[in-house]
């Protein structure tokens, strides 16, 4: 079973040379730490920066340079700043190659819910609805089950949706899965995790064909 860094490390393998990538808040943010340094990648933050770098050294923080999580950041050579409409133009116009975000629930048809728990949590969708409605290539990074031990990979989402039929791939602490017209197709198991464990933790339809390999990092 993987921890959050393990999930991020596996997703980093999906990041290819020449990609512009938008990382959501939480586990997705960690992906930047594991991207191979022999490929060229630029990270976009929807508040208006392309070419995000690491956090600044102590004392070099600039209140005018933050990411979408409102954290102080730096920029790398080749970076650019732009306004919010231009930023979402990049996203809706499908100029961003890969979107990685977290989720509360994913359904077997690719629906995603990650912005609201009625009566409990109403923080807003931020840029998530624009991202999931537009991106060609969306990977969800999340734990396979919630804190109560219930599956987050469902037949149908129970929470208000963020987007419909948009998720392509899911990487959890247990598995890598692909969304197909028949349901979640199991691609890889986390080290030491059995197909049976994954089946028990998946409420939606799980398709298992042949031997399922362990994840490689």
């Amino acid at each position: 079973m993987l921890d959050k860094n393990g999930i991020a490390k596996r997703i980093a393998r999906e990041v290819k040379d020449g990609y512009y990538v938008n990382l959501g808040i939480g586990i997705p943010t960690l992906v930047a730490n594991f991207v191979r340094d022999d490929i060229s990648v630029e990270f976009q933050s929807e508040n208006g920066v392309l070419g995000m770098g690491p956090f600044p050294f102590e004392g070099e923080e600039d209140a005018d340079i933050i990411n979408a999580g409102k954290q102080t950041i730096t920029t790398l050579p080749g970076a650019s700043f732009f306004d919010s409409a231009t930023s979402f133009g990049m996203i809706r116009g499908q100029h961003v190659d890969l979107t990685i975000l977290g989720a509360m629930e994913v359904a077997e048809n690719g629906d995603i819910a990650n912005w609201k728990i009625p009566g409990k949590m109403v923080k807003g969708m931020g840029g998530a609805m624009d991202l999931v409605a537009s991106a060609e290539n969306i990977i969800v990074a999340m734990m396979h089950t919630n804190r109560a031990g219930e599956s987050k990979l469902l037949k149908r989402c129970t929470l208000p949706l963020t987007g419909v039929q948009c998720v392509k791939k899911i990487v959890t602490n247990l598995a890598v899965l692909e969304v197909t017209s028949e349901g979640f197709r199991l691609l890889e198991r986390a080290p030491g995790v059995s197909v049976e464990t994954i089946r028990e933790a998946t409420e939606g339809a799980l398709i298992v064909e042949g031997d399922i390999p362990e994840m490689q990092f």
């Binding site: 409409a85 809706r92 609805m129 624009d130 208000p160």
Partner: peptide, 29 residues
């Protein structure tokens, strides 16, 4: 949605009464 919010501002700035966006389709938005 954040991109819709930005575009609703830009539309007002640029003289467009409305626009179509994929964001929020199929959701309560």
């Amino acid at each position: 949605p954040q991109g819709t919010l930005a575009e609703k501002c830009r539309a007002a700035q640029a003289g467009f009464p409305a626009f179509y966006t994929p964001a929020g389709y199929g959701t309560e938005v």
